[in-house]
Write a protein that binds this DNA or RNA. Structure first.
Lengths: 274, 274
DNA sequence: GTTGACTCTGACACCGTGTCAGGGCTGACC
DNA sequence: GGTCAGCCCTGACACGGTGTCAGAGTCAAC
């Protein structure tokens, strides 16, 4: 018979954890002195302790370990559990690899510049959203070409929505696609709505698909000055090992036609692993 | 002014977390209605929120994020923090990769055998230990050659220790090294002691170094039948991507000369990444 | 004025582990 | 048999980031 301390040393586990395993029914001592409450273990129990540790080291929770050891699982369930765990570990590895890339990018930036920059680019998942929109074509994706095309669309869009008795439910947003020929770009000027599609006569209603990964940054000021912020985004995705996957969406968090410099816009650039 | 719900949607954060960030002083609302307690945020604050999320996504704790954002760190401290974080992530990646290998080995074993095997091999770190020991030379590492050589050593060892008035403080253990020539092996039969080295006349006292990583398994029964357990160990290290790094130590957790079949022995095989 | 959607606070839960306080038990030595 | 060091007991709190719930108050649209 071993005292809890001896057993803990042999199993290289803390006494605290042995008591915990007892309390959750994972490993009960072979004997408990009814008077003193002292726990006593046998060398034989090292086998079970080792199994507990081996399974725990795979990353199973204690509840899962207990299920495995107490044999309340059939093989299929066990296989399912391990497959799930494998998927979790793969996701964890991917996430940590990305984090490591991020940390290393920050460190490089500090070493070369002596300070911290681009600290506000965030990777997000974008949910699908329903928008009412008008479209037009611009000569290129440069903001000098985009601005004059997109700006007139919004007053017209809001006018038509109001005429149809529809109230926007979200902020305005813009997105872009390449037009068939050359550098031209289709410009979509939209606003979030909660309305059944095809119920608006003069306005298209489309369901924008979600984006699994988008690098986003907040742009402050007029959209005429968006190029600098876009460059921050471009540098971030390069430093963090991503690649742009299309054009950036723009979400007009705050917009006032009279004072463009007070605008707040979120740029959302879909990315994929490069 | 945005309500907390709007702000949460824009920042893709839960309302719960915004309240939490407020309570820990990480991101206070621009205004709080003194009557209702309602929090109100400005679009401008999205910038800080994004910074919080970006740093948090690197894996910094909220306290660290606050330190960075509130500028109470100089560049050296920030660099140190990021280096530490990098080291943590690298360790995490290594650990998760090993876990993944373990899970995959289990899955393969289940697929091929329809059940779970070798569920009791555990990777441990072995602490350094001081032992009193006698040595001899055996013809090979096979247990048929080892047994007759090592068994007489223990009675002699305990006799000499008792004569010197020394009480063992730990279980018996054995370890092995290649002798200079051919297959021969130096056999060390020892027992843990807490005594100053060179204070025993007839017994060597040596400090066994710790082992950073050892695959261990509990062998039940006579040491004559240890080969099967050793093979379990060998299969485990192969399946999990390790390599043996020397001979296994043996720790005699329970031993009785009269009934060898009731023995409990821990085999400890030093391993390294292969 | 009604009502439904929103917000408030405060609390509990998760999970594995460390640590502490306050008190009881054991075993070795005298 | 007494003493004392070292062991063990229970119960509690803490960590950290987040979800969720209950019960009550508030806002805005109709």
């Amino acid at each position: 018979m071993l005292t809890i301390g001896d057993f803990a040393r042999l199993g290289r586990v803390s006494v605290r954890m042995l008591r915990h395993y007892d309390s959750v029914g994972l490993l009960r001592p072979a004997a408990v002195d009814p008077h003193s409450g002292y726990r006593y273990y046998t060398a034989e129990q090292l086998r079970r302790l080792n199994r507990v540790i081996a399974l725990k080291d795979l990353g199973l929770t204690l509840a899962q370990v207990r299920a495995v050891l107490d044999d309340v699982l059939d093989v299929a369930e066990l296989r399912g559990m391990l497959r799930l765990r494998r998927a979790q570990l793969e996701a964890q590895l991917a996430a940590d690899t990305a984090r490591l890339a991020g940390v290393e990018a920050r460190l490089r930036a500090i070493e070369t510049e002596g300070r911290m920059t681009t600290q506000d680019v965030v990777l997000k998942e974008l949910p699908p959203v329903r928008v009412a929109e008008l479209t037009a074509v611009a000569a290129s994706y440069e903001s000098a070409d985009i601005g004059p095309v997109i700006q007139p669309l919004y007053p017209e869009l809001f006018r038509r929505l109001e005429a149809a008795g529809v109230t926007p439910t979200g902020p305005g947003l813009a997105y872009y696609e390449p037009a068939g020929d050359g550098e031209k770009v289709v410009v979509h000027a939209g606003v979030g709505v909660a309305v059944v599609p095809d119920r608006l006569p003069d306005v298209a209603v489309v369901d924008l698909p979600g984006v699994p990964a988008a690098a986003t940054v907040i742009h402050h000021g007029s959209m005429d000055e968006v190029e600098g912020t876009m460059q921050v985004l471009a540098r971030w995705i390069e430093e963090n090992g991503w690649r742009a996957d299309g054009y950036a969406r723009e979400l007009y968090v705050e917009y006032c036609a009279e004072d463009p410099s007070g605008g707040v816009t979120e740029l959302q650039l879909p990315v994929r692993r490069g």
